[in-house]
C-alpha cells in the first residue's frame, strides 16, 4: 500500500426486506464482494510486494490486491490467517 492511498473495504453488506410471511428464519445481513480491481484503475508502478513464498500463498504478488474470502462458518471458527 502506497502512502496516502485510500484503502476501501473489499466487502459490503445490505439488508433484504423481511416479511412476516417469510417461511425461513431471515438472514438480515447479506454480504457481497467488491474486490480491489474495482478501485485501483491502472496499476501504478512500485506497489508494495509480498516475498515470493508469501505471494504464492496470497495468490498475488502485490499486497494491495490481497483480498481473501472466508465463509461465515470459517469466520465464526476464526480461521483467518
Amino acid at each position: 500500500m502506497q502512502k496516502g492511498m485510500h484503502m476501501p473495504s473489499w466487502y459490503k453488506t445490505y439488508h433484504p426486506y423481511v416479511s412476516p410471511m417469510d417461511p425461513c428464519p431471515p438472514i438480515t445481513t447479506k454480504r457481497y464482494s467488491t474486490p480491489p480491481n474495482l478501485y485501483l484503475g491502472f496499476q501504478p508502478p512500485g506497489l508494495e510486494q509480498f516475498t515470493p513464498s508469501a505471494a504464492l500463498k496470497a495468490g498475488t504478488l502485490w499486497k494491495y490486491f490481497y483480498d481473501p474470502y472466508y465463509s461465515t462458518r470459517e469466520m465464526k471458527k476464526g480461521v483467518r490467517e
Binding site: P35, K57, Y69, Y70
Partner: peptide
C-alpha cells in the same frame, strides 16, 4: 469460488480455492 468456499469445510481445500479466487481478481485487473 466464493460459493464453493461456503460449501466446503475442508481447510486445505479452501486454501487452494482462495488462491484460485485471488487469481480471478488479478486477471480482472
Amino acid at each position: 469460488y466464493q460459493w464453493l468456499i461456503d460449501l466446503s469445510d475442508d481447510p486445505d481445500l479452501n486454501d487452494g480455492l482462495r488462491y484460485l479466487r485471488e487469481r480471478e481478481v488479478i486477471h480482472s485487473q
